[in-house]
Write a protein that binds this DNA or RNA. Structure first.
Lengths: 204, 204, 204, 204
DNA sequence: TATGAATGAGTCTTCATTCAT
DNA sequence: CATGAATGAAGACTCATTCAT
């Protein structure tokens, strides 16, 4: 009996996602995926080169989304001190953030907590490093535009903030907040962060 | 050649730490530990019940240190709004923090990044949860003492901040900062955090 | 894009030869052949019954050439003691030999060194056995014609000489001799062999 | 139930030899060896690092014997033109040769015909190359001692003769000659070879 | 003819732990 | 206390070939 191509591929991906989520990349066996997906073990290898590629394929949509998010961060319209006051900008930013979380919740869990043993094992570190570079560039551009601000902020602090971003993402993904809880958290987070950055950049 | 009892135990622990650090809990094999430690494989089981307990034993000192740190956080002398201004208190707090990192750097790496597969795999989550409880209690007590402050802060936000703490710890452990870099970072961190908390608790 | 029938057959054969040469029969997979030849895997089975037959088909030209060479060996005009002196005959013989090597170098490598796992795995043995029979017959006929020669040579010695022939073929195929090197070798080989045979058949 | 160390090791080696002989290295599975030897599959890995090492261990005695044989070839007492006449020397040489074959018959088959896939796959080539070097050195030393001989013999010819040596060894190992057959063959071989070498080195 | 999907048995190797001595 | 042997299940992946279309 032959099932259609796409069907099998999708079934395998779905089952793999479930299995990876339950047991993590390393503790998930191809055998189990095959059995639970109702697909012949060796047949999986007609669709995916190996276990790692299967994992990557599961996370592909999320990964490209993240890439585009990071690219957007540095766009010119964000280069304004307004952002400390502009609730609009912040709101927009946050909505994107929350949307991303809601759309990719399981995949984010996978990526952040279950990737041990895969080639994405060090994604957090990699992503943080890249974010840090982006963050530093942002800082320099701001300094050019607003020479009076304090841009003498250590790379490591930026690094830390980038890492924080992922931490928060991870926490949100892990805990299922109600809508109100989410709203309150975001307000707090914005209040806290805005005050912090303002102090750091404008009053030192 | 026989080695004395305590020696064996210690040698095993040391070699296990090294091996776990290099390859992570899951990818470290008892065989390798035994071979590199020069100890008979099955003899290890005379000192430690199993691989997991060996791992726990390696991390025991760090774990109890962390426990005491958390306990101290809630002590009465910390219950003062002064802490927002008192550089002394903050300084002291930070020094403890830095001291801890310097003393337990490898163990912290182990605990935060290499524990996959062990019973400490979820330490980060567990610890964050406990920290959150402590943090909430602290908040209530502060509210009792200073009724005018805003203590209406979401548990999830506290949770997030606790998690942040571990994130920062992890970053410091991972990157070997010079003394000056550490100083600058701490200053930035304090500035940022103090402003944030102040805004959140006193001006809302 | 469809390729014409004969094309596909030939392309497959060529790619198979290349692959077999690189990795040997056993370590070459049908998948690889198909992929590199740009032919559908299962389509190969429309042209060749199985992997073994594909291998046989690759070597078919060489095999029939070898068969004819062996047949020629026993022809009447060769039945002369002159051959020990007649450089002409020897020369002709050698030239055929060298020509064969130059024309079929890769196929000879295939047949002699890369056939493990195929039905030609024991070709060397088979061919040697047949050659031995031919050689023995040759010897008898010579004895009939020249009764004074010593034809009491063991079958095993003939066998050994037949095997030697293949060995030398293999060596020549493996090492890429220059023209001069080939010439010198042939001279040496003829000198050595002629002296040996002469001693064995005429002076004992 | 625990069997003694050496027992198991030996049983495994014996069974492995048998299996390798029957099916060749590549087509012998560790599972089969384990089953037929009555040893736990994974237990084999307590004695041998992997399949290849098991194979090497089976052939170890033969390999060191061959090494010593080659080393002896160049010894000073062999440096004499007498050897063309001295039946003693030749006899001794041949006896060693035959003894070696009789003692190591199965192992020689293994090494020469069944090693495909193992690290000894190219033993024949390797050994021939080394033999060639030894042979060339021998030739030079002879030339020094007997300046009138013709030492202008191509390396490739020597190579071919070294290869021949292995070929003959292989043939003898494969065919079970009676004592008389062996004697006759040796005589023929010596007659043939001596005449050949003599012609090549002394009359050209 | 041509295709990609499907099969199912097979490969070597590793592991934490326990057993017998 | 110490040891090396033993266990049994599990791991990812490959293969030649056939099936359904």
């Amino acid at each position: 009996m032959q099932t259609q191509k796409d069907n099998i591929r999708q079934i395998t991906l779905d089952e793999a996602r479930r299995e990876f989520l339950d047991n993590g990349f390393k503790d998930t066996s191809m055998r189990t995926i095959a059995k639970n997906a109702g697909v012949g073990l060796s047949n999986i290898y007609n669709y995916f080169k190996n276990k790692d590629e299967l994992f990557l394929e599961v996370l592909k949509p999320l990964l490209s989304k993240l890439k585009s998010v990071m690219a957007a961060h540095n766009s010119p319209e964000n280069l304004s001190l307004n952002i400390f006051e502009s609730t609009d900008y912040q709101r927009e930013n946050i909505d994107m953030f929350v949307g991303l979380v809601e759309q990719y919740r399981p995949d984010l869990k996978l990526l952040l907590y279950k990737a041990y043993g895969s080639s994405l094992q060090d994604f957090r570190e990699t992503f943080t490093n890249e974010s840090t570079i982006v963050g530093m560039e942002y800082l320099y551009k701001m300094k050019e535009k607003y020479p009076h601000i304090n841009a003498n902020i250590s790379e490591f602090f930026i690094h830390t903030m980038s890492s924080w971003w992922l931490t928060i993402m991870g926490e949100i993904v892990t805990h299922n907040l109600t809508h109100d809880e989410t709203e309150q958290f975001i307000t707090e987070y914005m209040t806290f962060g805005t005050a912090g950055w303002h102090k750091l950049m404008c009053e030192e």
